[in-house]
Amino acid sequence: MNKILYAIIPVLAFSIIFVNAFFGHLIFASETQEVVNKYSVYVHLLSEWESDSKNIIFDVTNTWHKSDKISNVNHVFDAESKEYNENQLHELNGKSYVELKHEFSNCQEEWQPMLYRKAVDTVRHEIEYVQGQQLSADPTVSVYPDIQNKNYENSEQQSEIKNGYVQFFPICTSRDTTSYDYSVKTDNKDLGFDVYFVSSSIQREQFVDSEFDYYTESGCYAQNKQSYSGTCNNIKKDSGLLVIFPDNLKPWTTKVTVNLYENN
């Protein structure tokens, strides 16, 4: 009997993982008005960059509310019909980088987190909450403490980021004007990031060209942080979040966690 169980349990475990990996986005799609979209963006900086570290990983959670007008329409992501995980060569500040980004990061489809990922995220959330790294007791919402980068002054940060790396994350909304809670943290202890809510992805290029514009209301931006949470109100539907690092990354890989939550 034990021998049979030893054979069945691994097969069962593998089957569950397999089903989650390939069909979890269909099985566990939300029937509510709330859509949870999780994805990652991998960035590899090429030789022109000054950073010792050439790798940045952005783990993103984007939560928004469906429109009542389209709530019955199936927007579930069809993995079989998409070509995603393609390397794309880009240039920023005259320096090249390779970006690996999923197509379902564009807010057009619903990509629910798989069941096993929900479990892992919940456990991680509880551990961080006990350790004080997480301020929210709700495992579906991340709120990080406000931690200033103390390695150098903000004036140095503002000088350094002018030639740094800038990443744009679109919000997902069906409304013309909305409000978003957000939180950002990094595991890089050597430097800080700036974060700004901006009107559109165009501001990413304008930041590089020194013609940068952003939402200036309290809670819509922060400078020289290692961890931050805020709320930005009255933002337009094409808006998004810019996260900016100086070109001085030293660890092998810098990991950045970004959470975006549309308010009711």
Rank of each mutant, 00 (worst) to 15 (best):
N2D: 10
N2T: 06
N2K: 14
N2M: 08
N2Q: 10
K3P: 00
L5M: 06
A7W: 10
I8Q: 09
I9A: 10
P10I: 01
L12Y: 00
A13Q: 00
I16K: 00
I16M: 03
I17K: 08
N20F: 03
N20V: 02
F22H: 13
F22V: 05
F23H: 12
I27A: 02
I27K: 06
F28C: 03
E31I: 08
T32C: 09
Q33G: 09
V36R: 15
K38M: 00
Y39A: 04
S40H: 06
Y42V: 11
H44F: 05
H44P: 01
L45C: 04
L46F: 04
S47T: 11
W49M: 01
E50V: 00
E50I: 00
D52Y: 02
I57E: 15
W64P: 00
S67A: 09
S67C: 06
D68C: 01
I70Q: 08
S71R: 11
S71Y: 09
S71D: 10
N74P: 04
N74W: 02
D78A: 11
Y84F: 11
Y84N: 10
N85V: 10
L89C: 04
L92N: 00
N93A: 11
S96V: 13
V98R: 01
K101V: 08
H102L: 09
N106F: 09
E110R: 14
W111R: 12
Q112Y: 08
M114N: 14
L115R: 08
Y116G: 07
R117A: 05
R117L: 14
A119V: 15
D121K: 07
T122G: 05
E126W: 14
V130N: 05
G132M: 02
S136V: 13
P139Y: 11
V141C: 00
V141W: 09
S142V: 12
Y144G: 01
P145E: 03
D146L: 07
N149I: 02
N149P: 09
N151C: 09
Y152I: 00
Y152S: 01
E153M: 12
N154L: 07
S155W: 04
E156T: 14
Q157W: 07
K162V: 12
G164R: 08
G164A: 00
V166E: 08
Q167V: 05
F168W: 04
F169N: 02
P170V: 07
P170E: 03
C172N: 05
T173P: 09
S174W: 14
D181W: 12
S183K: 01
K185P: 04
D187E: 05
N188Y: 10
D190K: 10
G192F: 03
G192A: 06
G192K: 11
D194F: 03
S199K: 14
S200E: 03
F207N: 06
Y214F: 15
Y215V: 10
E217M: 13
S218E: 10
G219N: 05
A222C: 01
Y228K: 01
N233I: 00
N233T: 11
K236I: 11
D238Q: 15
G240R: 05
L241A: 06
V243I: 13
I244L: 04
F245V: 14
P246M: 03
N248Q: 15
L249C: 03
P251G: 07
P251F: 09
V256G: 05
V258H: 09
Y261R: 06
Y261G: 04
E262Q: 14
